[in-house]
């Protein structure tokens, strides 16, 4: 049997209006917990972007001259391939360097416009077998001064520290967010339970005259889902408003050498927002679902 749309709208809105305070409490809890999740996701992608060239054990980068010939590049690649001290080589050509550059400076279109792929040097990213600082340095320096090589740049302790800090911070924040989300789910559960209690007479009559279980359940399910969704929207709005400050607060590319800016691209923000929306809906649906299946004895 189809549940009528106008009936759903009427029931759900009147339910939401009936318990304004507790509904607001659940929405705010969802919003705060999702904002925390979102902020930590932003921080993570910021750090990832900033330290992109230093991921996966890369310890130093050999930047080539922009005018390096194909021959020079191939000979260097050969030597690197054959060196027993090198465990992994990643070659980044000018096009790849340019697309990375675009992500890093997504918020400065004028900068992207003024730079083309030809302005950026190609490079080899190298993971050595021996990660000891002195060993890495002596290995790296053997490539300095070679024809076609512009400079050799080493991962600094700062970068390792930033990466470590960010990954630990992310884990910590996620644990907190998980608790907050649990609280939000329980609050929604209780809100729905109260709404059902407030409408117990209607529910009793509905059962007596033969309303189907789903007909009785759907408005309550929808109510929980909407609370989750509104909470997610609030969190998304807050993060969107907060984003410019986020990038101002964090050190820019100039402050920490060898690191890109802590940028979060528009695409990454969209993914984060969609994630928050889905999590919000899920929390609402789970909370309401448990309330409906446990306390709506039909």
């Amino acid at each position: 049997m189809p549940v009528k749309f106008d009936y759903l709208v009427r029931e759900t809105t009147s339910n939401l209006g009936r318990n304004v305070t507790i509904t607001l409490a659940s929405i705010m809890t969802v919003a705060v917990s999702l904002a925390v999740v979102g902020a930590s996701l932003m921080l993570r992608s910021g750090v990832e972007n900033a330290t992109k060239r230093w991921q996966g054990g890369i310890e130093f980068v050999v930047f080539l001259r922009i005018d390096a010939t194909q021959q020079q590049i191939e000979s260097l690649q050969n030597d690197l391939d054959q060196s027993p001290e090198v465990s992994k080589i990643v070659f980044v050509d000018q096009q790849q360097a340019y697309s990375e550059f675009k992500t890093l400076f997504a918020d400065s279109p004028e900068l992207i416009d003024s730079v083309t792929a030809e302005d950026l040097p190609p490079s080899f990213r190298i993971e050595p077998v021996n990660k000891d600082v002195d060993a890495v340095e002596s290995l790296g320096l053997t490539f300095e001064g070679r024809s076609g090589v512009d400079q050799v740049v080493f991962a600094s302790k700062t970068i390792r520290l930033i990466q470590q800090l960010s990954s630990r911070l992310t884990v910590g924040i996620f644990v907190i967010a998980a608790f907050l989300l649990g609280a939000a789910g329980l609050l929604i559960l209780n809100t729905i339970r109260m709404a059902m209690f407030a409408r117990r007479r209607e529910i009793e009559v509905m059962k007596l005259v033969g309303a189907t279980n789903w007909f009785i359940r759907v408005p309550f399910m929808l109510e929980g889902l909407i609370q989750g969704l509104i909470g997610a929207f609030v969190a998304i709005g807050a993060l969107a408003a907060f984003k410019p400050f986020f990038q101002q607060w964090l050190p820019s590319a100039q402050d920490i050498p060898l690191v890109g800016g802590f940028q979060v691209s528009g695409g990454e923000m969209t993914v984060i927002f969609i994630t928050l929306g889905i999590v919000g809906i899920a929390i609402g649906a789970i909370g309401a679902g448990i309330a409906v299946s446990r306390f709506l004895d039909v």
């Binding site: 049997m1 189809p2 549940v3 009528k4 009936y7 209607e202 009559v205 509905m206 005259v209 033969g210 309303a211 189907t212 007909f215 009785i216």
Partner: peptide, 8 residues
Amino acid sequence: AFALEVIG
């Protein structure tokens, strides 16, 4: 009317 409404 409620009795008829809730059975669609």
